[in-house]
């Protein structure tokens, strides 16, 4: 009954405002999620999201049917968000070429995964952590937060991340590891999961 994204894109290209409105309504929340992950601030994420849809509209003619519309929108959103972030904060040099040995000397790896369990739908803890997620995300440095969101929300590959961020593939990989470790430390602290002797300080 409901038209597909591609049908709506066709109609919107043909000048149908209702088709475009429908596209906005369908994708607004995921777009906002991507934006929020990168810019942290809710009001800013709202503005970024609206700006992203404006750009989507401007570039509708360039969308090729081979890729998914959802992926395309996300990429545009991430670009807008990163641009906004760069304007707000001047970029700092990355200081993570390799993963230092000390990061790995924490005790009890696997604590978070075990606590969360393998069935993602069932655990109360997972829901609680999701609730504190944005607070935890906010405490990450911009470079870590950005690369995490691009990887996990936009699904970018190592190659795409390297190209997008202008860093070598090796740096992408170690930066992701480092970002997830920091995130994990924040989440385990929020959840009060016992991780004795953790060597990670965010």
């Amino acid at each position: 009954m409901a038209p597909s994204d591609l049908e709506l894109v066709d109609r919107a290209r043909g000048g149908d405002p209702e088709a475009f409105r429908e596209l906005v309504v369908r994708h607004q929340r995921r777009v906002y999620a991507v934006a929020l992950g990168i810019v942290k601030d809710r009001d800013l994420a709202w503005d970024v999201s609206q700006e992203a849809f404006l750009r989507v509209h401007q570039h509708l003619g360039e969308f090729r049917d081979e890729s998914s519309f959802s992926t395309w929108i996300h990429r545009i959103t991430a670009r807008v968000a990163i641009d906004v972030l760069r304007k707000e904060r001047p970029s700092r040099r990355s200081d993570l070429a390799d993963v230092p040995e000390t990061v790995l000397q924490e005790a009890a790896p696997g604590v978070l995964a075990t606590a969360l369990g393998t069935d993602p739908q069932e655990t109360v803890l997972r829901r609680e952590l999701s609730g504190c997620l944005t607070d935890a995300l906010r405490q990450l440095p911009d470079v870590h937060r950005t690369i995490l969101v691009l990887r996990e929300m936009d699904g970018l590959s190592y190659e795409e991340l390297a190209e997008r961020l202008g860093i070598p593939r090796g740096t992408v990989m170690s930066r992701l590891f480092h970002a997830r470790k920091k995130m994990q430390a924040l989440l385990t602290r929020y959840a009060g999961i016992d991780a004795p002797g953790s060597g990670e300080r965010s």
């Binding site: 309504v25 929340r29 739908q121 069932e122 109360v124 829901r127 609680e128 999701s130 609730g131």
Partner: peptide, 18 residues
Amino acid sequence: GTPGLPPGLEDLRGQLST
């Protein structure tokens, strides 16, 4: 309340999340 969706309502996740 604690955010969540019981397993029996999983088929509605897409719509309810709007």
